[in-house]
Simulated scan of single mutants.
Amino acid sequence: MSVATATARTPAARVIEMAGRGHRSLPVLVVLAIIWAVFYSQSSAYLSFRNITNLTLQIATTAILALGVVFVLLVGEIDLSSAVLSGVCAAIAAGLAVNSGLPLALAVAVAIASGMAITLIEALVITFGVPSLIVTLGGMVILQGLILVVLPPEFTVNVAGTSFAKIAGTAVPAGASYVLAALGTLAFAAYRAFQYRERISTGARTSPVSVVVPVVLTAAVLFGGVHILTRQRGLPMPVLIVAVMLLIAWYFTTQTRYGIHLYAVGGDREAAQRAGIPVRRMVVYSFLILGACAAVAGMVDASRQLGVSVTSGAGPLMLNAIAAAVVGGTSLFGGRGSIWSAILGALVIGSISNGVQLLGLTTEVQYFATGSVLIIAVAVDVVLTRGSLWPGRR
């Protein structure tokens, strides 16, 4: 780009370029704050400790499934079958743990392995050359039939009063929750300090503020979250499951070679192939992760609902999971996004649903709001991807 061209860029173009390079979570946080402010203005109970706890429990399933969707979107693919897959895996786990009497840990392991096996088959077909949209759409229909096969003749499994119900019914005591928050803060502080020393050793100019501020913010979020969520019985187990899965995903996507390859494949598949990155293998890995996340999401949801039926994994779950990933900042075009998109997007989608239910509004209001937010998020992603507000311009 010439000096004259760079100088001629409009302020809007410069803002779009800056937003495209990072900080995609900032607009999401602003939208979330607006949603909370609007609903709180209508009902003070919206931001009460009790309702915030209910909100976190309501979005747990969507957040876990959206986490798996993020991995698939990052490599430039899409999946439409994972919601129904979550119901199938929940039916497998509940059937083994409740009807067959297997230990819960073994039933959970079998369900996760089943989810990964199914997505492995889908991934192999996709790497063969069939578009992921078609493969997973067909897979969704097949899985709708498979759940009828997996369920018992009465087409339902009641898990109330069993060990399976403890997956979502267990709560970590407040004292232990604060210890976990302290450990998380210390671990993050050590990580930021290590990064600071690395930058200093390379001669890069940096300030201790780059360590102190993120650590303080992280501590405020962790301890504030624990304070709010432990006001009832303790820290809900689904919240802890989501947190652990997010941390594991964050580590592998940002601190390992796998993460570098993941973004490279989604950013430019041909260039990644020329660089020696195993593109097909990376696609398979992403779908395997989605299969595991779908299984966990299904079991958490079944434990919360105290049962599995033919409707498990149905309804708006698939739409909400994809919407959460996209609204949270993950690009539909691959190569851009973060695993934190899952929780941020799930908070946005869940906050709308929770507010609509709390105020007693009609269901269509929720659909209108969710659909509008999704369209706006994709439109923003398109603008950031092409670097201009208008088609055909850069």
Rank of each mutant, 00 (worst) to 15 (best):
I134N: 11
A377L: 15
A379W: 10
I52V: 15
L120A: 05
L246F: 07
G175W: 02
F188M: 04
P27F: 14
I126M: 08
A271V: 07
F333E: 05
R192K: 03
M116L: 04
L374P: 03
G392L: 01
R393W: 01
F49Y: 12
G138K: 14
T56P: 11
Y367W: 14
A107G: 10
R336C: 07
L217D: 05
H23I: 14
T7R: 10
A160H: 09
A314T: 02
A294E: 01
H261N: 14
A66I: 06
L32E: 13
F368N: 10
V265E: 06
V75K: 03
G313S: 00
Q195D: 07
G307W: 04
A171T: 11
V300R: 03
N99R: 09
V283W: 07
G371Q: 12
M237T: 03
M116K: 02
Q255M: 11
A109Y: 02
V69M: 12
S201I: 12
A324Q: 07
P27E: 15
V213Q: 04
I118A: 00
R281I: 13
F223H: 10
V110P: 00
G95W: 03
A369S: 06
P208Q: 06
V310S: 11
R14V: 04
V135D: 06
L306I: 09
A109I: 06
E270H: 11
M116R: 03
V141M: 10
S86I: 08
F333Y: 09
T253I: 04
R50L: 15
T362H: 13
F155G: 05
G95E: 04
V179K: 02
F333L: 11
R281C: 12
V30D: 09
A111R: 05
S353D: 02
L186S: 11
P316I: 04
A325V: 12
L151S: 02
I78A: 15
A90P: 12
G68R: 00
L73S: 03
M318C: 14
V70N: 15
G101A: 02
F155A: 11
M140N: 14
R274L: 11
L344E: 01
I147F: 07
V326R: 07
V378I: 11
A117E: 00
L374G: 01
Y178L: 13
L332S: 06
L57R: 04
A117F: 01
G392Y: 00
V98A: 03
T253K: 03
T5N: 11
L246E: 08
